[in-house]
Design a binder for these strands. Structure first.
Lengths: 252, 252
DNA sequence: TCGATTTTGTTCTCACGTTCACAAGCTCCT
DNA sequence: AGGAGCTTGTGAACGTGAGAACAAAATCGA
């Protein structure tokens, strides 16, 4: 017999009033589209208008918005300002989030100078680096501080979000320090897989992965792979270095 | 009666020898993990080892690899070098892809200096900007050239991938120029939704969207929303500006 | 040579995400 | 007042993705 099941089959698992992850990822896009419409003086927009501005189809947009509540008016559309506020509130960007950036190389520099933070609910409270030659440097209206001050800063400014722009090597160690200092959300630009305890959210932005995904599709477009299936290469009978070396090579 | 159906139900739709999109997005991660293992002198690795290194579970990893072919050995594992080559070939990074970067602001600078390109199958052939005060500037071993030279460069170097690091304003126009010059894959860092014709692939990297997604989860962690559902706000009865203005303003 | 052991490749099932299609509800016009 | 015309919100169908579980295949040891 069918086990008692409180959820409808097919309904995405979400916590109380939770929103499907795919929808959460699109809310910021809608928010930006609404801001653009608002700046153009548009007061009301239909799901079709909004969907076009956000680059999705209107059915998906309506379903996404329906998870937030019933904020539209049938036969009319959505009030741009009203919906904008509701989404901002749902995401949590009506308040300001304190952010630290760790690793002030090229990318860290670029992010430190990025102006889109303040207007979007985020406030950079510190730029940190372990390199003494960088500490003290002025970037915009901020000064690079020593990574050793991390714990102090996190506690003082209630920092909950950390951005890692170090090279791959120190990234995990930086991550561990961030977590133990109390940071519970991390945006990682370093090309490594970071391990964090449960309860800490992590997102990754990786340039070369994005390019490689494009390359895959590009290769498909420009005629099929013209490469040999098996190149000059050591035959495939190596063993893990900590296993006894076996013979019996099925050479090629 | 059941309609004749050639595909098994539940099998992901893919074109001939195509690979599910979710898998394609993970292949670069596997490639990096394999490179790391290889650099550590590991010759063979099990799906469990690889999965740990890549931050996924082993069942998923095995299924992903099975789309490429049968490159493992039961009871043994995968030959690291061999698998690495196979994945690189499948992605298309055994050849070099020419890339142009358009928009040499902070982020463009950072990307231009990023060393991870050459080693991963990509070659930056030009840095372009429309600002005459930037043209001629030297970055690393490259010189910023005028955006007007785009078509010439794309044709000469067979550029198929373009990276847009301009502000939001000019991004669509830059995108259009890239496409008409012959670029068929675009990586967009500008905070706008770009429109491209069919056949052109586009991927987007957006810092503030990533931060907003983190903020959403962060808000859930730190107690539920303490914000009013309806704030001081224009009442929700505005109309689209191109409709006849109706009275009944419930102004505030 | 044969069984024990290991690890892949694959099948099956369930969960998640997207899209269609339409009833419900709102506005406007006659 | 009532019908025509839009647009939202949502139920249902379909497609995609993830994970458990296991048969198949390889190695190793006796």
């Amino acid at each position: 017999m069918t086990p008692a099941r409180s959820r409808r089959p097919g309904a995405p698992t979400r916590t109380e009033r939770g929103i499907p992850e795919a929808t959460v990822a699109r809310l910021p896009v809608y928010l930006r589209a609404l801001t653009a419409l608002s700046d153009s003086g548009i007061a009301t927009a239909s799901s079709e208008d909004l969907a076009t501005a956000a680059g999705v189809n209107s059915a998906k947009l309506r379903k996404d918005l329906s998870y937030l509540g019933s904020y539209g008016t049938r036969g009319v559309g959505y009030d741009v300002e009203y919906l904008r506020y509701q989404i901002a509130r749902e995401i949590g960007v009506t308040q300001d989030w304190a952010v630290v950036i760790v690793g002030i190389g090229n990318l860290g520099h670029a992010l430190a100078n990025y102006s889109g933070f303040g207007t979007r609910g985020f406030r950079i409270v510190a730029l940190l680096d372990a390199d003494p030659t960088l500490v003290g440097e002025q970037i915009g209206d901020m000064i690079v501080r020593d990574f050793a001050e991390l714990e102090e800063i996190v506690a003082a400014d209630r920092v909950s979000i950390g951005v890692i722009t170090t090279p791959a090597g120190p990234a995990q160690e930086v991550c561990d320090r961030l977590v133990s200092a109390g940071v519970t959300s991390i945006l990682n630009f370093a090309p490594v897989v970071l391990t964090v305890p449960a309860g800490v959210d992590i997102r990754k932005v990786d340039l070369s992965i994005e390019l490689q995904i494009l390359a895959y599709h590009e290769q498909r477009k420009s005629g099929e792979a013209a490469l040999p299936e098996v190149p000059e290469l050591p035959a495939r009978n190596g063993v893990v270095s900590d296993l006894p070396s076996v013979g019996g090579g099925v050479g090629r």
